[in-house]
Amino acid sequence: MTNIALDLVGQATLVLKRAGEVEGTGRSEDALAFLRDAREYRNALMLELPNGDFGFTMIRQYLFSVFAMHQWDALSRVGDADLAGIAAKALKESRYHVRHAGEWVVRLGDGTDESHARAQDALDSLWPYTGELFMSDSVEQALAADGLAVDCSTLKAAWDADVNELLAPATLRRPADAYMQRGGRSGLHTEHLGHMLAEMQVLQRTHPRAEW
């Protein structure tokens, strides 16, 4: 998990650095990571939920990594050469995350009665958070039309195909698509994000511009 985290922190550093350059106000990747409040974050709600048990953690990792893999793949063909380069690099890392997490999903789902029950519970709890991954807005659609971003809704079919293919050997039942949670992409978060940011940002908030 820590090695996957290392890849994700690396990817976030590169993307935030590029975002700061495009924004043009001189904000560094660290300023964007450590000095924004929860309402300014645009992450999907799924990613801020507490870790739960190992089954929950790995199933979330799998559901998200498949999405990230297809998103990086599409982003590797956008018009911004820097972003496309970052995406091509991150794509390789995401493929490894998908394989690693996918093997765990099969092992847990097709394991003991206990691991199967926990894996199915985790999948059922996480499912209402998967819809948000594919909800695009007018900004994203306009950027996608100019070839500068990816319309997330176009990634759904590939994600569905991959997830369905894995759930079969994992002997897990795909939950029905019902009400889907939303809000993260527009800055409306669960109560969990604020607590996490308080923990992660405490050093920069207490000692502004500290370097290590």
Partner: peptide, 8 residues
Amino acid sequence: TVYSPAWT
């Protein structure tokens, strides 16, 4: 530092 082509 360049990111493209990605290291392999």
